[in-house]
């Protein structure tokens, strides 16, 4: 009994020790900068039970599809010009803009724009390689993309695989902070495209309703970015929190969810009602804030 107890404590102690060592190897501090408890990194060995939490955000393809279903149109003018890829000098800027170009690539693929897809693919490849992601954008993947330029479903599938493997490669190379910046860049670009396109669409209520619903994902992104700490990540975190502050000016109302389940087909529907509606003033503030943050990110 005593030996068992010692072993159990040793196992848990070992996990804590290895988590500390892994964290120190990655040169990432777990200090959130606000004095609060640290949040664990993705794919980490658990430090202890209570801290083993992950945060998911929608992919740029998901954001693009949601905007399309809400009535958004394709507007090339709002995207970051692909030739800007050559102008980003530091690693954090390259990471954020890999996310931006990934979002522009996804938006172009969702709206069946093959020329722009290949253009943004080339820009993404350039930045990915400069970030040390060498295997994801291989010649065979580029060839598959070219062969499938007319097949939207295949393109979306390949792009999903491409960015998932890039994200994983960064984490495996102990570059979780770069991976988080790529995700943040992609989400901010998705919000930027949504808020800009909404201004040009006559019936934009559904698009703004979607932007209101991005609130939960923004909160999860903030939690995710909080897992790393360097000067540029801190700036992104501050920017994201400034958007959150506008969302927080209104409350979300949610009713208790009720689930209906088909156990044979293993399919379920989670019911319940929620209201993420934003006021016109909030929409204007968010549009302006996101535009300013995105302008800062894409500035060479």
């Amino acid at each position: 009994m005593v030996i068992n107890s010692i072993f159990k404590n040793a196992v848990k102690g070992g996990i804590i020790l290895s988590a500390i060592l892994l964290a120190s190897c990655s040169s990432e501090s777990s200090d959130n900068g606000d004095g609060s408890d640290s949040i664990p990194v993705i794919d980490s060995v658990p430090k202890h039970r209570a801290e083993n939490a992950f945060y998911s955000i929608p992919s740029p393809i998901q954001l693009g599809q949601m905007l399309q279903r809400a009535g958004a149109t394709y507007d090339k003018k709002v995207l970051n010009p692909s030739d800007n890829a050559a102008k980003y000098a530091n690693m954090d800027s390259k990471a954020l803009n890999l996310g931006v170009f990934g979002a522009d690539l996804s938006y172009s693929a969702v709206f069946n724009q093959p020329q722009e897809v290949m253009s943004y693919l080339t820009s993404s490849k350039k930045l990915a390689e400069e970030l040390g992601i060498t295997t994801s954008f291989s010649a065979s993947v580029m060839e598959r993309m070219e062969k499938n330029t007319g097949n939207r479903d295949s393109l979306l599938y390949i792009i999903s695989e491409l960015f998932l493997s890039s994200n994983e490669a960064l984490k495996e190379n102990d570059q979780s902070h770069i991976s988080v910046l790529v995700l943040a860049g992609g989400f901010i670009e998705g919000m930027y495209v949504g808020t800009q396109v909404a201004k040009t669409v006559k019936d934009n209520k559904a698009i703004y309703a979607r932007i209101g619903e991005f609130r939960g994902s923004l909160n999860n992104l903030i939690m995710l970015v909080s897992t790393v700490n360097n000067s540029d990540v801190s700036e992104v975190l501050t920017d994201l929190r400034s958007i959150k502050a506008v969302y927080d000016e209104s409350a979300v109302t949610e009713e208790k969810a009720v689930t209906s389940v088909d156990t044979t087909k293993k399919v379920m529907t989670i019911g319940g009602k929620s209201n993420y509606k934003l006021s016109n003033e909030q929409i204007e503030k968010i549009t302006s804030l996101v535009a300013g943050i995105r302008a800062k990110i894409i500035k060479p």
Binding site: D43, P46, R49, N52, A53, S56, I57, N167, R215
Partner: peptide, 19 residues
Amino acid sequence: QQVFSTVLLNGDKTQLSST
């Protein structure tokens, strides 16, 4: 474009927040 994996012991839990 994200996967989440971790090592758990008996009696542990992990959680994922998502919209």
